[in-house]
Amino acid sequence: MKSIFPILTVVAAIFALWYVFAVVLNAPWAYSKAERAEVELSFSEMVADTMAQEKPRLPAPHQVGAEIWKTTVEKKITSKRSLIYHGWITLQATALGFAFGIGLGILLAVSIVHFRVMDMSVMPWIIASQTVPILAIAPMIVVVLAALQVDDIVAKGVISMYLSFFPVVVGMVKGLRSPDTMLLDQMKTYSASSSQTFWKLRLPASAPYLFASLKVGAAASLIGAVVAELSLSQNGGLGARLLAGSYYGQTIQIWSALLAAATLAALMVFVLGAIEKVTLKRMGMAQ
């Protein structure tokens, strides 16, 4: 807890920088407005103007805050202008994709650990698969899946899955292999079968690794869902808000959607962290 003060300082510094940039970036527009209205602008008036423009190049934090307040608390949840509504759509796709990703990842990891052929033939491709900028081709995959009459949420989920299965595979393979020779020999002296070794030794031993990679995977699958929504924007979602904002130059809307996505990511990582803490404690593995 002694790092709370430095963290707060850094966050405050980021906000201060944000304000400075808002003034610098919005100043030209403030001056050109004043020139057209033929009024002389003092420095303090200019600063005040940069804080309250309608379509600023960089909205000031309090403007974004006000927008978020307006679109979460003051709007009904079912309204299409509510950030909670859009966030919920994104969260559903993320959760679906993440669940797929965890399933696929664990399945692949188990078979990789158990079969040498899988290890040798699939593992290099799994690693190579992540150097493919999948996020960049997500729109196309979404379009193709939509053409195949797949539900939109599944199409988004596929992108999320692709991004989130990799951390799970890598973490699980490491975790399932983490029991050392001594422990494996012990299982052998108990004449445990390989499935018993798996359920009683390898799987429990992999739990800390699994949680570490789940946190990475959760953030990745959220990114996947948001980008997928850029091309499936008709049904809403935070990505759709981003896109609409960029079409109409509504910078405040873009920033509020971005912050909402950030909050969602933080929330997911936090929840996973809490589950991790409880689980590892009950398994007797908490440090």
């Binding site: 990114i223 981003l242 896109l243 960029s246 130059g249 910078t251 873009i254 971005l258 996505a261 990511a265």
Partner: peptide
């Protein structure tokens, strides 16, 4: 861990 890709439309604007 944030979806920084979302900054893309803003950067294109700037």
């Amino acid at each position: 861990a944030l979806p920084i890709v979302g900054l893309a439309p803003i950067m294109v604007m700037w």
